[in-house]
Nucleic acid binder design. Structure first.
Length: 651
DNA sequence: CTAGGGTTAG
């Protein structure tokens, strides 16, 4: 676990002097009479600047405390004060804080200023109160392009696509000219298809080098998976602001190119642009990619601390997920524990983190704490707790939470929730119950569900189900090799070579390729990649001889290779064993054993799931070599120790 | 006068 720097004290950079700042802080920290007097004598303008500073830095509690002191001391807030504090309220989860400020705005008459009105409607929209947001907007005497844009993005934020588009056209009808911000917002719903249309309109109306729309266009291309055109748009944006840089960074991150994302980060700082919380949370998220080094994530954490962004909610939330995904669940919890305020996202990040590590008990504890605090719940929070139950085989608990979600929280189960339940029953061997859900849920099963059923068919030797699942996977996701391979193996096993050959032909015609399995291991700050049977590593010879040595020792300890995991069309059992024994994770582990000291834990990251035989193999390695081995596969973590795995062979 | 809208995290 890394040592976290104490971040509870932040020193803002102020326009006024150090002395005044110290007085300021003391006035906030104790209710000492002298300090209070100092507070009262400080001009309102400086309080406002301080408030602005807090709001810009995401220091929500500080900002609200300051506003409260201001209110208590009898100073009358200005429209500037209100704008700032409403901006802060927009990020609160308790909408009542904002409502209170709303009352103050009405009483003082400040509500009639455009800025205050806009902040108010924005606050309601961001806290999910669309009705009040709309009402404030309708009652505004004077509306400008900013107010219109705020309503549009407010609707979009709350899923009101149709209303957003309506407001967009109404605005144009009333003669208000959309600007870059407006296009930027509306582009989020136009899904690529309209990109060229909007682009034409943008060029016609705002001939200003894509400055504000650029980032939105860029995002459009990225969601279409077109990083090339995204890059071209990026080049055209001039000057490039932080939003544009962040959008480009996200583009590379989504394409799995963590190093390119990091390059963008360094480039923007070199150009004198200051990264903000969006940049940091995006960059830290990029560090969770399987091929990214664990060091990189820590470096950006350190960087965030240095630049004082670590206390921003989105940043600390992304840190929780980053550490969890990097296998360091303790650091994830440490960040979570130190969060001054936590949102729904914070709690669900922690729950999913524990779930991925198979620590179901802790996941449920955190979830129960959330329930006790009467926090608002959403579908994703329940996905976290259900997946914890699934990974640990807690059938009763899973059923219980599923019902709580529907009956107490009135959340409609999504496909994800049904998948969890199907997987939960399937792993527990309750195939009939799993099938009941498949038949009765209001969705057509997606490829994910069929993959679960495919796994079930293998365990239960249910050929009929296997065939059905494989065929559905092929039709739903024609580029996924799993269905073809399974179907081929089934035909081959039954001696039906005619159909087997046809499957192979189809696969060939469609250019379907099995995703290459990679395993990564980090040794002395360097990441090494291995793929099955490769010999690129300079120590390759030693790695393979270590593997043969291990094989002999493991067989003495009772290891029997399970060649059923091999999906190749090979008859020779010995050949199958060889393929198994050279799976990428084994190469990585063998290298880890050679290259690190005996008490050093070995961390492996895989892009695919670990196969049953490798799982057995690693368990025994952890026993005979007395090593702690952590494997992160596509879905979750396995902590191997003394011949056992944290997943309890339940994955 | 300053301030409000656009990107981000599970």
């Amino acid at each position: 676990m890394i040592a976290l720097i104490n971040t509870s004290i932040t020193t803002p950079i102020l326009r006024y002097g150090r002395y005044q700042f110290d007085c300021y802080i003391s006035s906030l920290q104790n209710s000492h009479a002298v300090a209070q007097q100092l507070f009262d004598e400080t001009p309102l303008k400086q309080h406002n600047q301080m408030l602005f500073h807090y709001s810009r830095n995401g220091q929500t509690p500080e900002a609200l405390n300051l506003f409260l002191s201001l209110y208590r001391s009898g100073l009358s807030p200005t429209k500037y004060t209100m704008s700032c504090v409403l901006n802060v309220c927009a990020r609160c989860f308790d909408g009542r804080v904002g409502e209170h400020v709303h009352c103050q705005c009405v009483k003082s008459g400040l509500v009639h200023h455009v800025c205050v009105g806009t902040c108010l409607l924005d606050m309601y929209m961001k806290t999910g109160n669309v009705r009040n947001g709309r009402r404030v907007f309708d009652e505004m005497g004077h509306k400008d392009v900013v107010s219109w844009t705020a309503v549009i993005s407010g609707y979009l934020l709350n899923g009101g696509t149709v209303e957003a588009l309506k407001v967009f056209s109404q605005m144009k009808r009333e003669g208000v000219k959309p600007n870059g911000f407006t296009y930027s917002a509306i582009l989020a719903v136009t899904h690529g298809v309209f990109i060229s249309e909007i682009l034409a309109e943008v060029i016609k109306t705002n001939n200003d080098k894509l400055s504000n729309v650029g980032a939105a266009l860029l995002r459009g291309f990225i969601t279409m998976g077109n990083i090339h055109d995204a890059g071209k748009v990026f080049e055209q944006i001039e000057p490039k602001n932080i939003v544009a840089w962040t959008a480009m960074l996200v583009g590379y991150a989504q394409a799995g190119e963590t190093d390119e994302a990091a390059k963008i980060f360094h480039q923007l700082t070199k150009e004198g642009i200051k990264p903000n919380e969006y940049t940091f949370s995006s960059m830290i998220k990029a560090c969770t990619a399987p091929a990214a080094s664990a060091e990189l994530g820590k470096q950006f954490h350190a960087c965030a601390i240095k630049m004082r962004f670590n206390n921003h909610l989105s940043v600390s939330n992304s840190l929780v997920t980053m550490y969890a995904k990097r296998g360091d669940i303790d650091s994830a919890h440490e960040v979570f524990k130190r969060q001054k305020e936590r949102s729904l996202v914070s709690w669900s990040s922690m729950i999913s983190g524990y779930a991925q590590h198979g620590q179901a008990k802790k996941a449920l504890e955190v979830f129960e704490e959330m329930l006790n605090r009467n926090m608002e719940m959403d579908a994703i929070a329940f996905t976290g707790v259900l997946s914890a139950c699934t990974h640990a085989g807690l059938v009763n608990k899973g059923e219980y939470y599923f019902n709580v979600m529907i009956n107490d929280h009135h959340i409609n189960p999504t496909m994800e929730h049904y998948s969890c339940m199907i997987d939960l029953y399937r792993r527990a061997g309750m195939l009939e119950k799993a099938m009941d859900i498949v038949k009765n849920m209001p969705f057509h099963p997606n490829a994910g569900v069929w993959r679960i059923l495919l796994a079930a068919s293998r365990v239960h030797h249910d050929m009929k189900l296997g065939k059905l699942a494989a065929e559905n996977i092929i039709s739903l996701e024609p580029q996924d090799a799993a269905g073809y391979v399974e179907l081929y193996n089934m035909y081959a096993a039954a001696g039906n070579w005619h159909d087997a050959v046809n499957v192979k032909k189809l696969m060939h015609e469609r250019k379907v390729k099995k995703e290459t399995g990679y395993s990564w291991i980090e040794v002395k700050n360097k990441t090494y990649a291995f793929k099955s049977g490769d010999s690129y590593h300079p120590l390759s010879k030693h790695i393979y001889s270590k593997l043969s040595e291990l094989n002999i020792r493991l067989k003495e300890a009772g290891y029997q290779p399970d060649t059923n995991s091999v999906v190749h069309d090979i008859d020779d059992n010995e050949q199958k064993e060889t393929i198994l024994s050279h799976h990428s994770e084994r190469l990585a582990i063998a290298f880890g054993l050679i290259a690190t000291l005996p008490d050093f834990p070995i961390h492996i990251v895989k892009n695919l799931r670990v196969c049953g035989d490798c799982h057995n193999f690693i368990k025994l390695v952890s026993l005979v070599e007395q090593r702690y081995i952590v494997v992160r596969d596509r879905k979750r973590f396995h902590h191997f120790k003394g011949g056992l795995c944290s997943c309890g062979d339940y994955w």
